[in-house]
């Protein structure tokens, strides 16, 4: 029996410990997209006097011009949104940590929100941990599992980057694409794709795992509100055709948020754009789309703020 245990431990050493050693030894992409997490964390930790905190997936990183908001409303803006692949759980947990009393928190997640129980993806969470190993301690058990599961994807990517040197195209996302507010602005001036292949996102009507995920995460959102913040949902930018094909998923999301008493800042239909306003994916706006979306956001926020001041 002892031999068996030592054999298993040896296997674990070779098959798991060694790969992680290799992962930490091998160089990380110096301009990798997820590296921006550190910069955004710093932004969020700055002084706050009733600011706007934007959190969410890449759709919010690519859809907002924070400077425009700041100039219009006279409030500081911090855009911490990065990648929906980090998972609903992680993103809201971070927002809870980052938010200060008096903040207006705008949360923007895509249509896949909550799928898989709210954990992140193996192509995001482990990569984040590679850049910021200290984050490992903060992860939920589900995301710890994702780190373990994503070991080999991460290892493969790092080996491939080492062996095959690929220069980044205009469409590869970089850390350096972010501005000092946290918006991804490199794509504002980059050429758009033109036609974008629409996606169909479906959701099963009786997805209990997803509903339980929303229960958990919306409880965290309530905690943010309890801190003295206002929380709204920013509808994700969506391509028209994708929206048509994915109506059920969009309705499911609205229903889930409504069930927990969390409101949309403005209706989803105001965030549905044609291809001429999109960059390269159904949920990424281009320069023109950013301007339009930001204007709608500003208008909705100023109305909501007035209304809320009357209510609260």
């Amino acid at each position: 029996m002892k031999k068996f245990i030592t054999g298993l431990l040896l296997f674990f050493l070779f098959a798991f410990i060694l790969p992680w050693a290799a992962i930490f030894i091998l160089p990380s992409d110096p301009d990798g997209y997820l590296k921006a997490y550190g910069m955004k964390k710093e932004l969020a930790s700055g002084p706050s006097d009733g600011r706007i905190l934007i959190a969410g997936g890449s759709n919010a990183a690519f859809a907002v011009n924070s400077r425009m908001i700041q100039d219009s409303l006279g409030l500081d803006v911090v855009n911490t949104s990065l990648h929906a692949g980090l998972g609903f759980d992680f993103i809201v947990r971070e927002a809870l940590e980052d938010s200060r009393p008096g903040d207006i928190v705008l949360l923007s997640m895509g249509l896949f929100t909550g799928a898989g129980g709210g954990v992140g993806e193996t192509t995001s969470i482990p990569f984040l941990v590679d850049y910021y190993p200290e984050k490992l301690a903060d992860l939920s058990p589900g995301n710890m599992g994702i780190v373990i599961k994503g070991t080999y994807v991460l290892l493969k990517t790092k080996i491939k980057d080492l062996l095959v040197h690929k220069s980044k195209s205009g469409w590869d996302y970089r850390c350096s694409g972010f501005n000092s507010y946290g918006d991804e602005e490199a794509h504002w001036t980059a050429p758009s794709a033109g036609h974008i292949e629409p996606q169909t996102i479906t959701v099963s009507p009786d997805d209990r795992k997803r509903e339980r995920c929303f229960d958990r995460v919306c409880a965290m959102i309530s905690q943010i509100e309890a801190k003295g913040c206002q929380v709204w949902i920013l509808p994700p930018v969506l391509q028209e055709e994708t929206y048509e094909k994915s109506r059920d998923a969009a309705v499911f999301l609205e229903k889930e948020y409504a069930r927990h008493g969390i409101c949309y800042l403005f209706p989803q239909s105001d965030a549905v754009f044609g291809d001429e306003l999109l960059f390269n994916r159904p949920e990424h706006a281009n320069g023109k789309g950013v301007a339009l979306y930001t204007r709608r956001l500003i208008r909705a926020l100023s109305t909501a703020c007035c209304r809320d001041q009357q209510e609260h």
Partner: peptide, 17 residues
């Protein structure tokens, strides 16, 4: 055991989701 671990690593790197 190192051989089996190497096989395991290769499989995991190229397995689909």
């Amino acid at each position: 055991i190192a051989f089996y671990a190497a096989v395991f690593i290769v499989v995991m790197m190229f397995a689909t989701n």
